[in-house]
């Protein structure tokens, strides 16, 4: 319901408000001479599609990561995947002059690199066995900081191209990125499909690796495939509209109380809620701060930071108090 309302609002609201009937007309029988129709089809529709794509992928990625690492703070953002993908896309565009086609590949490589770095740092810090996996998140945050720093340095090397990427780097849902979406969408969809296929064995793994193994699940393979799918999903979303932070962190916490631990049910739920969250964030970004239009990533960071702090407080502090007292 909320998704439908948000969809409608996204179509209708804007610099000019367009009535619902006109929107329906534009989608069903497009008239190239009508300005309103043009706006709906070439500006608002791409935005909606991008928001749906990014939101669904990030949310599902976060859900699976949180399940696999048993860590309420895990998400593509907090584990360095987004930052890695962003850095590689940027480096590819600056140093190798990669076109749009190369971007997807660069993002995938980068996502894997970021994830591997995060795990490597956590291992190096020797805190992998650390209870609750805080060290993993900390090393993810450090990795992201470092990669973002390098990305910023790369941006500064060429001021003329800087403006092209400035919006993208902070994560922005914008109709300009539509052609990237049309080249890359199938990667994200494939990743999502893979996750749906794996949903049943993954649910079993979350119950415990021993139980899953005794139920006939090849734990190693399923885990690797699922992680790969998550990295694919997150990086394809980054390749389109830049690192949208914290959808992957927040949405699973919203979905879990309603859908339970069963991934076959919670994955579609997460996808829906994630898409809605992105649409809403985009709406807020464009309308709440008038006359300025904010990047969507900023709004998500703001919300995400609050939720992050609350999760830390709820899961780690109260648990610690219970254990000690």
């Amino acid at each position: 319901m909320v998704l439908c309302a948000a969809l409608l609002a996204e179509f209708c609201l804007g610099a000019t408000t367009i009535p619902v009937s006109v929107v329906a007309d534009a989608l069903l029988s497009f008239d190239p001479d009508n300005y309103d129709h043009y706006v709906v089809l070439y500006q608002r529709l791409p935005r909606v599609l991008i928001a749906l794509h990014a939101g669904a992928l990030m949310a599902c990625g976060g859900l699976v990561l949180q399940g696999l690492t048993r860590n309420p703070l895990a998400s593509p953002t907090t584990m360095g995947i987004n930052a890695g993908a962003m850095l590689f896309v940027l480096a590819g565009a600056y140093f190798l002059n990669l076109g749009i086609d190369g971007r997807g590949a660069a993002a995938l490589l980068g996502g894997m690199f970021g994830f591997a770095t995060c795990l490597g740092v956590a291992r190096l810090a020797g805190l992998v066995q650390d209870q609750g996996g805080l060290a993993l998140i900390l090393s993810g945050a450090l990795t992201s900081m470092l990669l973002f720093g390098i990305a910023n340095a790369i941006l500064l090397t060429d001021p003329t191209r800087r403006t092209d990427f400035l919006g993208w780097v902070s994560g922005n849902i914008n109709h300009v990125y539509a052609d990237q979406l049309f080249r890359i969408w199938w990667i994200g969809l494939a990743a999502l499909a893979l996750l749906c296929v794996l949903a049943r064995p993954l649910t079993l793994i979350m119950l415990g690796t021993d139980k899953a193994a005794s139920a006939g699940v090849n734990v190693r393979w399923v885990r690797c495939l699922a992680l790969l799918a998550v990295v694919l999903a997150a990086s394809s979303s980054v390749a389109v509209c830049g690192p949208l932070g914290f959808v992957g962190l927040v949405v699973p916490h919203i979905v879990r109380p309603f859908a339970g631990a069963d991934l076959t049910r919670s994955l579609p739920g997460a996808a829906l809620v994630g898409a809605t969250a992105c649409l809403l964030a985009d709406l807020i970004a464009r309308h709440a701060f008038l006359p300025a239009v904010v990047h969507t990533g900023l709004v998500l960071d703001l919300v995400g930071g609050v939720v992050f702090a609350l999760i830390v407080r709820r899961y780690y502090l109260t648990a610690g108090r219970r254990a000690s007292g």
Binding site: L73, D130, Q131, G132, L134, A135, I137, L138, A141, G245, L298, V299, D301, L302, G304, G305, V306, F308, A309, V312, R313, Y316, L317, G320, R321, A323, S324
Partner: peptide
Amino acid sequence: STDGNSGLTLLLMGIAVDTMLSS
């Protein structure tokens, strides 16, 4: 609360606050 996680909790909390404020 006394910190059971060797100070990592405080650090993560700080990073969260930092993210919020910078946006």
